[in-house]
Simulated scan of single mutants.
Amino acid sequence: MTRSPRFTQAELEAARDRLVPDVVAGGLRVLFCGINPSLMTAATGHHFARPGNRFWPVLHLSGFTPRLLKPSEQRELLSYGLGITNVVARATARADELSAEEYVEGGRLLAEKVTRLRPAWLAVVGVTAYRAAFGERKAQVGPQERMIGDSRVWVLPNPSGLNAHWTAATMAEEFARLREAAQA
């Protein structure tokens, strides 16, 4: 088994504010949208790369992928009709380093991207980020009333290891609800 690369704190800090390319194509079944890249993601160039982030295991447990993918295999998602982007493009150590203005501008840019790419579903991983980006203060995890162009919106729990009140199993159940809706 290959281990994730080790970076010094200085190397991670050097990745601050770095942009990480989206994994996208037109007409995806689901476009997953993270809050913003972590420093580990920016250092590696791979989404959800931080050890302890449960995105990749939950994606597999929920049936979106036939096997557990490593962050370095992120482009394989396109073959399953899946992609990844972020609400805010710049990398930070923690999401609380982002300003309210960055979330709102990120929501505006995300809406433009979704309108252009036309995924069947936009899946925002993190209810707090969704609320901040789209001004939906009472949004809950699950399908939303909002549509962006022809794309439906689903809010998923944040897979960060810091989100302790969601287990990998309960997250996988919610991801599977989206997978089933996206197959319908």
Rank of each mutant, 00 (worst) to 15 (best):
D96N: 15
A95N: 04
A15Q: 01
I84V: 13
P71D: 00
A43K: 01
Y80P: 09
R16P: 01
R116I: 02
R16G: 04
R54E: 08
E97W: 06
P66Y: 12
Q74T: 07
D96A: 10
D96E: 14
V30P: 09
V23N: 01
F64C: 02
G34A: 08
T44A: 13
A43Q: 07
G52S: 02
A14H: 02
G27M: 07
V104M: 09
A42Y: 08
S72Q: 14
V114R: 05
S99D: 03
P66K: 14
F48Q: 10
S38Y: 03
Y80I: 09
E112H: 13
L12C: 00
A111K: 02
L82T: 04
V30N: 02
L78T: 08
E112L: 15
H60L: 05
T65H: 10
A25P: 14
G26Y: 11
M40D: 13
T65E: 04
V30R: 00
V23P: 01
F48D: 03
E97P: 01
L77C: 11
V88R: 08
Q74M: 04
G63W: 03
N36F: 10
A91K: 10
I35H: 05
L110I: 02
K113R: 14
H60S: 05
R54K: 12
R29T: 12
P37E: 09
M40A: 13
G106N: 01
L69D: 03
L78Y: 06
G106A: 00
C33V: 12
H47F: 15
R54V: 12
T115K: 15
Y103I: 01
K70R: 15
L59H: 01
F64I: 01
L117S: 10
L82V: 02
R108P: 11
G83T: 04
R118T: 13
H47E: 12
M40N: 11
A14D: 07
G26H: 15
A111C: 08
G52C: 05
S99G: 03
L117A: 06
H60G: 06
A14T: 04
R50M: 11
A43L: 06
A89R: 07
A93L: 12
L39G: 00
P57V: 02
A93T: 03
L69H: 11
L77I: 06
P21D: 01
T41W: 13
A15L: 08
P37S: 08
A42K: 03
L69A: 10
A49N: 02
Y80L: 14
V24R: 07
A111R: 12
Y103R: 09
Y80H: 15
G81S: 02
E101Q: 15
L68D: 11
L31M: 12
T92N: 14
L98K: 11
R67P: 11
E102T: 00
S79D: 13
P51H: 09
R50S: 14
